[in-house]
């Protein structure tokens, strides 16, 4: 049963790889590791390391584009409401000659509701993206749905489905206002008592109000709670 799930994830990956070579569609692979550290009953820290690769034009391999290091401090205001502040540094200058490093400040609010087995989550996020050339402000709203696949609650060894849709607005002196839209579908497993493996596929339409670009991301994330 467990290997069937891995076959599903593997199939997803193998199917997506040819899609990444389509004209007008840029392909990326992002792997990340997240460690969540509860400081108290209501306050947690989250540390994340992410690597992003882009698919080369000849689809022969992946090229490292950037490495992100981030921290998020989250406070539980109510049982279904969280406020978080975060900081991220993106190392890109060393890997991508067209890109620059970035410092990002993050603030977000998360509201969740779980009437039955399915959970609905709203996330409002504001980011200040600081580049050497200037600062970009980005506002984001994400609506998510997740549900366990084997029962009413997620138990160890079981899988879950998660889907997001997110709207982003980037504003700054550096560029004209830019609207982006993202759609994500993921399959995750609670592989250990506090360890989650998540594979997801994300389709992005960037700057759809002007000169739109399409991007396809394949995410693999290992999340560990201490």
């Amino acid at each position: 049963m467990y290997f069937t799930k891995y076959r599903l994830a593997l199939s997803l990956w193998l199917v997506c790889t040819p899609l990444l070579a389509q004209d007008g569609l840029d392909g990326f692979l992002q792997t990340q590791a997240v460690v969540k550290l509860p400081i108290s009953e209501t306050y947690t820290h989250r540390y994340q390391l992410a690597q992003r690769f882009y698919v080369t034009d000849d689809i022969q391999g992946f090229q490292l584009q950037q490495i992100d290091l981030s921290h998020l401090s989250s406070l539980k205001i109510r049982d279904n409401l969280r406020l978080a502040l975060g900081l991220m540094y993106r190392f890109r200058d060393s890997f991508d000659r067209f890109g620059t490093d970035e410092v990002r400040l993050i603030q977000h609010l998360v509201l969740s509701n779980r009437p039955e087995n399915t959970r609905f989550v709203h996330r409002w996020r504001a980011e200040q993206r600081i580049f050497p050339d200037g600062t970009l402000h980005r506002l984001r709203y994400r609506f998510s749905v997740d549900l366990p696949l084997q029962g009413q609650n997620l138990n160890q060894g079981e899988s879950y489905l998660v889907a997001h849709t997110e709207s982003l607005l980037s504003i700054g002196n550096m560029q004209r206002p830019q609207w982006d839209q993202r759609f994500t579908l993921g399959l995750g497993w609670l592989i250990g008592k506090k360890t989650v493996l998540l594979n997801s596929l994300e389709y992005r339409v960037e700057n759809f109000n002007a000169d739109s670009r399409q991007r396809l991301f394949l995410f693999t994330s290992l999340n560990l709670s201490l």
């Binding site: 467990y2 290997f3 891995y6 994830a9 593997l10 084997q150 029962g151 009413q152 609650n153 138990n155 160890q156 060894g157 079981e158 592989i191 250990g192 008592k193 493996l197 693999t220």
Partner: peptide, 19 residues
């Protein structure tokens, strides 16, 4: 990496429910 993680399944006794 993904395949290796599979061997960690089911090594702990647990309370659970399933459909």
């Amino acid at each position: 990496g993904c395949l290796c993680l599979g061997v960690t399944f089911g090594q702990e006794k647990r309370e659970w429910e399933r459909r």
